[in-house]
Write a protein that binds this DNA or RNA. Structure first.
Lengths: 233, 233
DNA sequence: GTATAATTGAAACGAACGTTTGAAACAGTT
DNA sequence: AACTGTTTCAAACGTTCGTTTCAATTATAC
């Protein structure tokens, strides 16, 4: 089909523009112009601008989560009876995301900036389309984490997973750009004397991944707190 | 002045609508309607819609960072010669943010959802307005962290601060709404059998803060890695 | 080659956008 | 009471938005 080219051109342009300016700030005309296709082609192939947003996400999330589950199953198969270690589970969950976020070839770098937007913008989208896409991943990994963190109270467990996802999402969204330091340094501000960030390390996904895993393992394995009296507010 | 009322009404309405729908998806008409003021009042008092975005942020960020620095100075004064502990520093940095994010009275809950948007949307804004607002905080806290984590290689140190900020930002943006579980449960999906999240705990900022601090302390204190050979890509 | 369906193209649609205008209403001062 | 500066108001400005239309073009089938 000739339409396949047009569809992909639109998705690539939309992915880039969405990640740079957001969904509602990106016009259909900007997308079709950047894609080099006619204005009406977007509505012809996708029906509406909202459908393009959905399609942009669905193109990346499916493979990402399939890879996560594949790595988890690999780890489970390798470990046999006693099950995979916390580090193995974390690696299965984090590696595909960090990899995708750092891969400029697949356009994943742009896409991952979108995930941060997906959390806040287009609330309906994340509630419906994404929730279903992630449901299986959540369920499987939650079970695996639970097995290696049996002593953690359920709520503590929930929050720590929350924190790990936060660290991951933040890393995915900013590992490529690293606005903090770039901006500060361009303003002539030195964060700390002698603290210069190696650009190579910044963009080396393997190094980032191993650092994130080490951080997450330590955070997840922190000693469980003494129960807090709540409701005293 | 009578205009003070109008200004605040506009800022409150804008803060709420921005946090729910994003900046560009929120129209000036929606803001002024929700604020109960005339359409032209926004341009009269602020000049433009963009100026309203700036004003919404500046109203909250100043007090937030002043409180952070105050708590840090308190901890430094209390600890005397040897300086504050890692937990004290983390508390000074995280407490005002979590507190603000959980305080519905001040509207901070809404505002904190905006910080996530600020990272991605309106890129110029975060690069200019915010960077200057946060520069002092970054410098002071970076120095304090460095003192209690002297053995951490600079890059490892940088990344771990990065992860902590990610966990904090994610928590601020989602602690009130908690879309993950709400959405999944409304879809009939159970993340893990027996894992029901206590709503009280979710919205108790003190409990969230102590959990986040415990997580961050453990993550930051994780053993430094053996140096990785980079540049082999 | 001709019929048929799929795709592209230029132009226009109504709606909503941010902003501006100029008169009306209000405040405070003398 | 008259004046002055500030704030509010309804209305309109020109522009851009997402979408639709329909003829022209291209690919596919017979």
């Amino acid at each position: 089909m000739a339409g396949e080219d047009t569809r992909e051109k639109v998705l690539n342009a939309a992915e880039e523009l969405f990640s740079e300016h957001g969904f509602s700030a990106t016009s259909v005309r900007a997308i079709t112009t950047q894609a080099g296709v006619n204005l009406a082609a977007l509505n012809y192939h996708f029906g509406s601008k909202d459908a393009v947003v959905d399609a942009v996400f669905e193109r990346r999330i499916g493979p990402l989560n399939r890879e996560r589950l594949r790595l988890l199953e690999d780890a489970e198969a390798r470990s046999g009876q006693e099950g995979p270690t916390l580090e193995d589970i974390l690696r299965a969950f984090l590696a595909p995301a960090i990899q995708l976020a750092s891969d400029p070839g697949s356009g994943g770098e742009r896409f991952m900036k979108l995930m941060g937007r997906g959390h806040s913008e287009s609330g309906d989208f994340f509630s419906k389309v994404i929730a279903r896409q992630f449901a299986e991943v959540f369920r499987r990994f939650s079970r695996a984490f639970r097995k290696v963190l049996p002593d953690l109270p359920p709520e503590e467990y929930f929050w720590r997973i929350h924190f790990v996802i936060g660290a991951m999402a933040h890393t995915m969204a900013h590992s490529a750009t690293l606005r903090y330091l770039e901006t500060l340094q361009s303003e002539g501000v030195t964060v700390e004397e002698g603290l210069s960030i190696d650009k190579v390390t910044l963009n080396d996904p393997d190094a980032v991944l191993s650092r994130l895993i080490r951080f997450a393992v330590a955070g997840l394995q922190a000693e469980a707190p003494v129960p807090v009296e709540v409701g005293s507010t």
